[in-house]
Computed example of a mutant assay.
Amino acid sequence: MGNSSSSLKVCTDHQGGINWLSLSPDGQWLLTGSEDGTARLWSTADSQCRGHFQGHESYITFCHLENEAAFTCSADHTIRKWDVMTGQCLAVYRGHTSIVNRILVSKDYLFSGSYDRTARCWSVDKEKPIQEFRGHRNCVLTLALYSSQDLLQDSEEEESEEEKLSKDFLVTGSTDCTVKVWWVSSGRCHQTLLGHTGAILCLILDAPNRELFSGSTDYTIRTWNIVTGEQLRVFKEHQGSIICLELVNRRLYSGSTDRTVKCWLADTGERVRTFKTHKHSVSALKYHAGILFTGSGDACARAFNTKTGILQRVFRGHKLVINCIQIHNELLYTASHDGTLRIWDIRPLCKRGKRRLKKERSLQGRSSQKGSLSRLFNNKVGCVVHQEDGREQETVELM
């Protein structure tokens, strides 16, 4: 069993639950969005609160942090942009007619999804709505974005000149049980992915493999070919809604209301491991240095060895559900509905994890070298070694 761990610091500045936690690309800042209608900026160097963003008229549902700008969306139907250094509100994006659930920032564009059944695209600098995506019959809960340069360059589909000029596609998941793919340039629906029988709660893209994974309240995860829209696989062993997904080295981790995390081979859909011991829903996942960190409705975070599934540490101290986790410089940050941000030292765990990964890579290298020597020897005597190569590759993948 894992050992309990106490936090290095507890940040109690918020007056309401923390709904989301975002880390800046350079790792210098954290942003928390809260039920109290404010966002706060935290320095990862000293864990001090360096900014307090006020202006929303209702609770903040989600937040996103760039190096110089912060973005928040709210139940007040708006999105706001903030200057990280001054705390000044730089822009207010108005147009949605209900709660804004999610935002996504890409270069000069801001994307949003709302309970008003639409997603929208905005010009970040001009507060200008560029596109509206209409077609869902219910709330838009989750978003993803990809470029045609990454995923469609080998497509043989017939395309209009307008579509050929377009590079970006927006993916939306809704409580109407569908996933939709939209041309950003025209706002037109490119594909509707049908198969789920429950709300879509989470999406994750694997651009190099042109695959999209969707998690739903129907207890399944589905994999789609993002080019053709074809459903490739269905992951069926969960006994509750899929709340969160994490994809690492073609291993898919799924957190569920059934109190477990499952690890799947993304290429085949085979379940290879189940992580238990949670006493409530698994609400957050993060992989780091061979360790899977989880946040749960039982107010605890946990660390599991991803190879063995063994629980290595339990992080206790929160009083309510952990909504989000981040990791930076071998510190674990957990944000909870109890209104606190907690910081935990995970250096001992990370050192062990890195030693294990280094050892595994060394063993893989020796196995590969052994296979090369065997091939040289067997080639001299005319033996066929395809089976040996196959075993070596399988061993590498399982490590």
Rank of each mutant, 00 (worst) to 15 (best):
S4H: 14
S7V: 08
L8R: 06
K9C: 12
C11I: 15
D13T: 13
G17N: 04
W20P: 01
L23D: 03
L30M: 12
E35C: 07
S43G: 12
Q48C: 12
C49N: 14
G55Y: 09
L65D: 02
L65I: 06
E66A: 12
E66I: 00
A69L: 11
A70M: 05
A70L: 06
T72W: 04
C73H: 05
S74I: 03
D76I: 03
H77C: 13
H77W: 15
H77I: 01
T78V: 09
W82M: 10
G87C: 12
Q88A: 13
Y93D: 04
G95D: 05
I103L: 08
V105Q: 01
S106L: 01
L110R: 00
S112E: 02
D116E: 04
R117H: 15
T118C: 09
A119T: 00
R120G: 03
C121W: 00
C121D: 03
D125Q: 14
D125K: 12
K126T: 08
K128M: 11
I130W: 01
R134C: 07
R134V: 12
N138Y: 11
S148F: 05
E159P: 00
E162D: 12
G173M: 04
G173N: 04
S174T: 05
V181D: 04
G195H: 14
H196I: 03
T197P: 02
L201S: 10
D206S: 14
G215S: 07
T223V: 12
W224V: 05
W224K: 01
I226T: 05
T228R: 07
Q231L: 10
R233V: 11
Q239M: 11
S241C: 08
I242S: 02
I243R: 12
E246S: 15
E246M: 07
L247M: 13
Y253T: 11
T260E: 03
C263W: 02
D267R: 10
G269W: 03
E270L: 11
R273C: 10
K276M: 12
T277V: 14
H280V: 00
S283F: 10
A289W: 00
G290C: 09
I291C: 07
L292I: 03
T294Y: 06
G295S: 06
G297W: 09
A303P: 00
Q312I: 05
Q312A: 03
R313S: 09
V314Y: 02
R316C: 14
L320Q: 15
I327P: 10
N329F: 09
L332T: 06
D338H: 10
L341H: 06
D345S: 03
P348H: 07
L349I: 03
C350P: 01
R352N: 08
K358N: 14
K359C: 08
R361E: 15
S367F: 10
K370H: 12
S374D: 14
V381F: 15
G382N: 10
V385M: 15
H386Y: 12
E397V: 08
